[in-house]
């Protein structure tokens, strides 16, 4: 054999491209849709962004159940605006994933068939009005930490979608906190309602950051390629440090008997997460997995004739002479 094989030449070219790609990320440049990127980078981003989009869309469901019974007109309007924003976030994120070559139909199909995941936290039920507060304060609070990090992600369209989303999420978190503050300062029943909601949403929110770094199979490559800039455990620690003093100040407790303050590090140290529950909900066995997917499938199936009519109407408009 003389010289290099085609594979080797391609490999050499691949290595050069990869080196340049990684150098760009190291320089803090954004990767844009038409730029060269490793297939794995594209695959990981489509997975993350579509999962994120699905989470926004499925996330409309638990709060949606309380729009019709929000206890004041002002609360009702705020909650509606929030759920509307979530739909909007789903929309930007689907667009961001489309820039990587995924189509909305493929992504929806993956969600409805159960192949694609969404944030497991939405597989827990919203049982009382106080849950609107707990979801806003804890779930959105956790989401913001993750999203603030992703606003610095190396992929331009994802980063820009996140910057926009973060601004609105801050407002969502404040509305949640405001509900919890109001209840915590209210009647005994209201305080009990708030505590019950915090008890139920605390651990699912802690789980939102994902497995420990040592068990997270995607973390290493995502950190290397600048999609993530902080680890799951770092973000989780930041969340605990932020939330514990807020809850204590309101006279609410955190449902973690092992929780304690560590003088040396200045961190609130939390007890171990129930990882069996975490994996079980991811596998589809959470309290509401079946209900959430049934709601999405029903909306999709009931809307089939509407989408067909839209296509037929669009085709008809196109066929018409100008």
């Amino acid at each position: 054999m003389y010289g290099a094989t085609v594979d080797e030449i391609e490999d050499a070219a691949y290595d050069d491209k990869l080196a340049e790609f990684e150098a760009r990320i190291a320089r803090g440049e954004k990767i844009e849709p038409g730029d060269w990127m490793p297939d794995e980078y594209r695959r990981q981003l489509i997975r993350m962004i579509s999962q994120h989009a699905h989470s926004e869309v499925v996330g409309m469901l638990p709060e949606g159940t309380f729009i019709t019974s929000a206890p004041t007109l002002r609360r009702k309007l705020i909650l509606l605006a929030k759920v509307q924003d979530e739909g909007g976030h789903g929309q930007y994120l689907y667009h961001a994933a489309e820039t990587l070559g995924a189509t909305r139909e493929e992504m929806l199909e993956a969600l409805l068939s159960g192949k694609a995941k969404y944030a497991s936290v939405f597989n827990y039920p919203a049982l009382s009005w106080a849950d609107m507060g707990a979801i806003g304060m804890l779930v959105d609070g956790a989401a913001i930490l993750n999203q603030t990090m992703l606003a610095r992600a190396s992929y331009g369209p994802y980063s820009r979608a996140m910057i926009r989303i973060c601004t609105e999420e801050n407002f969502h978190q404040r509305q949640g906190e405001d509900i919890i503050i109001t209840l915590a300062q209210g009647t005994e029943e209201q305080k009990a309602m708030a505590q019950d909601a915090i008890n139920r949403w605390w651990w699912p929110s802690m789980m939102m950051f994902g497995p420990h770094d040592s068990d997270s199979k995607n973390s290493e490559i995502l950190l290397r390629w600048g999609v993530k800039t902080r680890t799951n455990d770092q973000l989780r620690q930041q969340f605990v440090n932020q939330m514990v003093p807020k809850l204590h100040k309101l006279g609410l407790s955190v449902p973690d008997p092992d929780l304690h303050y560590d003088e040396e590090s200045g961190n609130w140290i939390h007890g171990e997460i129930d990882w069996d529950e975490f994996w079980n909900v991811i596998k589809g066995n959470g309290p509401c997995n079946a209900e959430r997917m049934a709601a999405r499938r029903k909306a999709h199936e009931d809307g089939q004739w509407v989408r067909e009519a839209l296509e037929a109407y669009a085709a008809r408009q196109e066929a018409q002479p100008a």
């Binding site: 949606g64 309007l77 605006a81 739909g87 789903g90 509407v306």
Partner: peptide, 25 residues
């Protein structure tokens, strides 16, 4: 508002939440 999360296309989940917001406003 009952359509929020259940509309035939995502754009209408958004549009109907917005309609409900205006009507109730």
């Amino acid at each position: 508002s009952e359509w929020a999360g259940h509309a035939p296309i995502l754009e209408e989940d958004i549009a109907f939440a917005n309609l409900a917001l205006d009507e109730i406003g």
